[in-house]
């Protein structure tokens, strides 16, 4: 561990550049997933524990289409469309029935969905680790110390464009306005003639599409495996917990922060701690919030 620290700060400080870049690349994907979670949480009060499995499913759609001969970049819109449909289906079958029940019901129902999705993906694709290798150009700098695959840069740009698109949609479009109205007061929205059931369906499907897009990016810049979903869910919860609902700059900041934190713990403590670090960060965030609220005689709810 000490050697690793020395490596970073004394022997090869350039490695920090690589870590920071990787942290930002992967952090963008985390932020995207977390934004989707914040959306369904804020609008329909659903805590979606299948969030990470939506990501993985998006990744596998991309993987399947890529193997069927599609251009990797073309799989992104296709995966988003398919995931939008899937999200709608999930809403109609499950979410609609748990939306006005207590919190734990939605949490557990989505956890059940998460198990189901893992197993189905596992049955179809098998438990091996997979990746979509688009075989794009790889840039390097500092005497090959730092390598930047252009696909990573591209994915960062795509993630940013996607986030921008969603924000514009929420702010400007009529539909986005009705989503925000429903989030504030569903009853008032219903009285004003907004079809809240449809708004919920669109919100949930939109979230699934965002996750799907994130999954495509993950498949291209990293790896996917049927059982990796849960960690993405926990990451999303960590980010949303740290940044609060409906605060996009904070979500992006926390996403990058988590990406960096994972890269650094991966190097300093060893790669096997990379996943645990997300969980530890979640717990730290929760405890920090408890202490802050305790001073105000309040609790985290």
């Amino acid at each position: 561990m000490l050697d690793n620290l020395k490596l970073l700060f004394i022997w090869a400080p350039v490695m920090n550049v690589q870590l920071i870049l990787d942290g930002i690349f992967i952090g963008a994907v985390f932020a995207l997933t977390a934004y989707g979670l914040a959306l369904v949480w804020g609008v329909m009060n659903i805590k979606n524990l299948a969030q990470g499995d939506f990501v993985i499913m998006g990744g596998y759609i991309s993987f399947a289409l890529f193997n069927a001969g599609f251009h990797p970049l073309l799989t992104l819109p296709l995966a988003m469309i398919l995931m939008f449909g899937f999200g709608w289906l999930v809403y109609v079958i499950i979410i609609r029935r748990v939306i006005d029940k207590d919190m734990f019901t939605s949490l557990l129902a989505t956890f059940g969905l998460s198990l189901l999705m893992q197993q189905v993906i596992n049955l179809i694709f098998g438990p091996e680790v997979q990746t979509v290798d688009p075989d794009f150009k790889i840039y390097s700098a500092f005497d090959d110390f730092v390598t930047i695959p252009s696909i990573k840069i591209l994915s960062l740009v795509l993630a940013a464009l996607l986030a921008l698109g969603v924000v514009l949609f929420m702010k400007k479009s009529r539909l986005g306005q009705s989503i925000r109205a429903t989030a504030q007061d569903p009853r008032a929205a219903r009285v004003m003639g907004i079809n809240t059931d449809r708004v919920y369906a669109i919100t949930f499907a939109l979230n699934a599409a965002i996750c799907g897009a994130a999954g495509v990016l993950v498949a291209m810049i990293w790896v996917i495996q049927p059982f990796y979903g849960i960690v993405y869910s926990i990451r999303s919860f960590a980010i949303v917990t740290a940044s609060g609902l409906g605060n996009l700059p904070a979500v992006i900041g926390a996403g990058f922060g988590l990406g960096l934190a994972e890269q650094y713990t991966g190097i300093v403590f060893g790669a096997e701690y990379q996943v645990a670090s997300a969980v530890v960060l979640l717990l730290l965030v929760l405890m920090w919030r408890q202490i802050k609220l305790r001073q105000k005689r309040e609790v985290v709810r």
């Binding site: 919190m103 960690v231 926990i234 917990t241 969980v279 929760l286 609790v299």
Partner: peptide, 18 residues
């Protein structure tokens, strides 16, 4: 146990996974 509701469920799930 200073956490309520969803945070408690997810916090404990996090502990088990970790």
């Amino acid at each position: 146990f200073g956490l309520r509701g969803p945070y408690f469920a997810i916090g404990t799930l996090g502990i088990a996974v970790a």
